[in-house]
């Protein structure tokens, strides 16, 4: 089945079995390894991508569901090529990255949170990200990172 969608700002179309999982499309067919798979059953959030700006679990989505959508993966978050998006920069600075396997999903979930709620409280951050599992950090520095990202974005007068 021919599927056309926008991926990280660029139009793509590919011929895919309609029941192929989106996480496999991204990783295996399109070579975007930043999207991680850690459970395959919708329990961990590692495979989070943004579809029309909304976080979706790519391990539970099928290729056909991409038709006509606007998809952002971690590779497409920063607009200016090499440099990191302020949220990514905040994760680095706050020490929110250890093994890093949960990180792309966390960053994308944060992007959505901050676009809805530019100055969330720590409780709101914890609530909003509670579908994403991290086994390394104990979450505290991720909450710090989201707060820092919110600051960075407001300073710049940007939204996520």
């Amino acid at each position: 089945m021919k599927i056309s969608f926008t991926l990280n700002g660029k139009p793509v179309s590919c011929d895919l079995p309609s029941n192929r999982r989106v996480v496999d499309v991204l990783r295996e067919d399109l070579g975007l390894m930043g999207t991680k798979e850690a459970c395959g059953t919708g329990e961990c959030g590692a495979c989070t991508i943004l579809v029309d700006g909304i976080p979706r679990l790519s391990c539970l989505m099928l290729a056909a569901q991409l038709e006509g959508r606007d998809v952002t993966t971690i590779e497409g978050l920063s607009k200016s090529g090499e440099t990191l998006h302020p949220i990514q920069q905040a994760f680095v600075e706050a020490g929110a990255v250890q093994c890093g396997f949960c990180t792309p999903g966390m960053v994308l979930a944060t992007t959505h949170l901050l676009s809805e709620n530019p100055r969330p409280t720590r409780e709101e951050i914890r609530e909003a990200l509670s579908g994403n599992i991290c086994r390394c950090t104990g979450y505290q520095k991720i909450v710090d990172a989201v707060e820092l990202a919110a600051e960075k974005l407001t300073e710049k007068g940007e939204t996520a």
Partner: peptide
């Protein structure tokens, strides 16, 4: 190691 990890690279 964080920048490459956070960028999915």
């Amino acid at each position: 190691d964080a920048p490459a990890k956070v960028a999915g690279r």
